[in-house]
Design a protein around this nucleic acid. Structure first.
Lengths: 205, 205
DNA sequence: GGACCCATGTAAAGGGTTACATGATTCA
DNA sequence: TGAATCATGTAACCCTTTACATGGGTCC
């Protein structure tokens, strides 16, 4: 059962930090959990209604002298309980789909220059993200040293830093490999090789 | 437009290595691209029909003396062209959703023992995968040194090895952090902090 | 006899993304 | 005047996942 609605809990989590409107939630999501969790308006607004009908959040209309009305949502007691209960559950391993790897895996049919082009682009994007994560860590530590959430925010940021650093090394290695690739003459498929093996990389969960 | 059907190309790619039945495709997918791309029967069989009607694959019924008939699919010339054209396109950055990180980000509301429990489990699973990838690399190099696909298979395997090694370090660090976590007294939300900042980690694509 | 593998599918449900839709305010 | 931001939503589509369904063969 991996089809459960997790957006609901992302929204509850964000509302647990402070009351917000749907619009705020979108912006807060981008700014905080954005690099590992994305939500669009079309998931936020319907979910807020659902959460309201389940009694997990309450709302209040705030009129703004200049500008449109805002509908501000807050967590209810019940909402807090649901959130905490969910946080305790072991996360389900989510199925991964990596289009870049899929294209590289079947890359022998292609002139390597195409792959090098998009790998170099992806590498630059990765480096920018990495630097941005590092600067956020530095600023958090110096500007918000006493916040109770700090250790947890740092944990998620360090996840990004660890994996993106590793990714950068892989990009460099891979681009170099592709620049000097020498193809063998055989054409046995990988699939056969692994299938024949006792248990190459099977069902290790 | 991230809604395009990529399963089709995964199937074309697998069929490019050799003709297979739907059942074979499932097994071959698990054995080769399984750790970064999953396909189920309910996506394979309908897609094979679609590919057939588009003329990208052809099929042939093979009777087996013992056992049920097999419907074996092969790439057509047109299928080859479509596959190559797709391989040249720059991969779209896919939205990431990491439930583990989501739970950790809001983890301050929780007793750390829950997180430590599932982190330790996840770490073991990660280590097993890592070792399996390393052994596949070793075996490929020694047993299939001359195959033209080898450099590309190694590239995807090394991706897994790099990122999972980094992940292992992060697991260790994180579990230690959580065992000794000392919470601050403040309760400013992270979101406000980043939103106020000029451009903490925004829209870096 | 029961469990498990081979082999091929269908149906329903659910979630997420894209595109569409509206309207006010602010800034250049 | 036009572009961008604030603010809230709806509708349709597509894909994926889960569950259901069938039937023969093999091994213990």
């Amino acid at each position: 059962m991996g089809r459960r609605n997790k957006s609901k809990f992302a929204i509850l989590g964000l509302l647990s930090t402070e009351p917000m409107s749907g619009y705020d939630i979108k912006r807060a999501a981008e700014a905080s959990i954005g690099y590992f969790w994305q939500e669009g308006y079309s998931s936020i607004y319907p979910n807020l209604k659902k959460l309201l009908s389940e009694g997990l959040v309450s709302n209040k209309v705030e009129a703004q002298t200049p500008g449109p009305d805002r509908i501000v949502y807050s967590l209810t007691e019940k909402g807090w309980e649901e959130l905490k209960a969910w946080l305790m559950l072991e996360p389900e391993p989510e199925p991964v789909r990596n289009e870049l790897l899929l294209k590289l895996f079947f890359g022998e049919h292609l002139d390597a220059k195409h792959q090098i082009r998009y790998l170099e682009k992806a590498r630059v994007a990765n480096e920018i993200r990495l630097k941005s994560l590092q600067s956020i860590v530095a600023r958090l530590k110096s500007e918000l040293p006493d916040q109770s959430g700090l250790p947890y925010w740092l944990i998620t940021l360090k996840f990004g830093i660890h994996t993106r650093t590793a990714l950068d090394a892989w990009f460099e290695e891979t681009i170099n490999d592709l620049k000097t690739v020498v193809k063998g003459s055989g054409s046995k498929p990988f699939t056969k090789f692994v299938l024949k093996a006792a248990d190459g990389g099977k069902n290790v969960e």
